[in-house]
Amino acid sequence: MTAQRQDRCVWRPEIAVIALLAVFCVLCNGIAGAAETTQRIVTDRFTGLAIEGFDPVAYFVNRHPVLGLSEFEASKEGVVWRFHNEGNRASFLAHPEIYGPRFGGYDPVDIARGITVAGNPRFWLVTGERLYLFGFEANRAAFASDPKSFLTKAQARWPSLERDLAQ
C-alpha cells in the first residue's frame, strides 16, 4: 500500500462512535415501539384501522375472519372499522359493545397477567357471545382450555390497564 493510500485509510474513531450511536438508537426505538401499547382499541398505527381491517361482525356471522372493504367503513371512538357488507356495518353500529373485540382487542391471557399485548385478528375465539383476539396461538389454546379462569383475572386487571392506555 502506498503512503498516499495509507493516509486515506486512517482509523477515524469519531465516525465509528457516530455509527454505533446510530445503530443503538435504531435498536432502542424498534424495541420501545414494539412494546408500546397506548390505544384503548388496538389500531394499526399506519392505516388507522381497527383489528387490521377485519370485519368484527364476520367472526359471528361467517365463523371466520373476513377482511372488510373500504366501501363499508365506520368511525367509532376515533377508530376506523371496516366491514364486508352494509348489514355487518349496521349491526356493529347498533351494538359495538357486542361485536367489537373484548378488551379493545388486547390479548385476554396477557391482560390476566397484567400487561397489554395487541391481539392478532387471525388468532381469535368467540366465547360467551364475545370476540377475543390473542397475540399468540398458544394463548388462544390456553384460554380455550379454561376461559372462566382467564376472564376472571382479566376482568379484575382490565380497569387499571385501560386507565393507563391513552384516550
Rank of each mutant, 00 (worst) to 15 (best):
A50D: 01
F103D: 03
A118F: 07
F24D: 08
V126L: 02
L21T: 12
G33L: 06
A35G: 14
V57Y: 02
G128A: 05
D7R: 15
M1L: 09
F72I: 02
S160Y: 07
V80D: 03
R130W: 03
G33P: 09
Q4F: 12
Q39G: 12
L67Q: 13
A156R: 11
T116M: 01
I98N: 00
F134Q: 03
D7C: 08
D55L: 02
G78F: 05
A142N: 05
Q167M: 04
E86M: 01
R12N: 11
R102C: 09
E71M: 13
A50N: 04
L20W: 09
T2R: 11
V57Q: 05
G105M: 06
T152E: 14
I111P: 09
G135L: 06
Q167H: 10
A142G: 07
D7N: 13
I111G: 06
L125I: 04
V61G: 00
G68M: 02
Y132C: 06
R157L: 12
V66L: 10
G78H: 05
I15D: 09
F143T: 04
N120D: 14
D164P: 00
T2D: 12
A141Y: 03
S145N: 08
N85Q: 03
R8L: 14
G100S: 10
W124S: 06
G68N: 03
A144Y: 04
R102A: 14
I31M: 10
A32M: 14
Q167F: 07
L20S: 14
F134E: 06
G114N: 10
K76C: 08
I15A: 14
N85A: 04
E77D: 15
F60I: 00
Y59I: 05
R130T: 01
F136L: 13
R63L: 11
I98S: 07
T47C: 11
P147M: 07
F92W: 00
V57M: 08
C28W: 15
M1Y: 10
V66C: 06
L21K: 07
P101W: 01
I41L: 13
I18K: 13
L93G: 05
T127A: 09
L20C: 15
D107C: 14
R113N: 11
A22L: 15
W158E: 05
Q155E: 14
Q155C: 00
N85G: 01
F83S: 02
E36D: 13
G104W: 08
F103K: 07
V79N: 07
A50F: 05
A141M: 07
L49I: 00
F24Y: 12
A74F: 11
S145W: 01
W158F: 07
W81C: 01
V79W: 05
I15P: 08
F136C: 00
R163Y: 04
P96K: 02
C9L: 14
F150N: 03
R12Y: 04
F134A: 08
Y59E: 01
S160Q: 12
E14C: 07
S149F: 10
I15M: 11
A118N: 00
V126P: 01
L131Y: 06
R40D: 12
T47F: 13
W11A: 12
A138E: 10
A166C: 01
A138R: 12
L20F: 11
F103A: 03
L67C: 04
G119T: 02
D7Q: 15
V126E: 01
A142P: 02
Y106N: 04
K148H: 09
A90G: 04
A32N: 12
V126H: 04
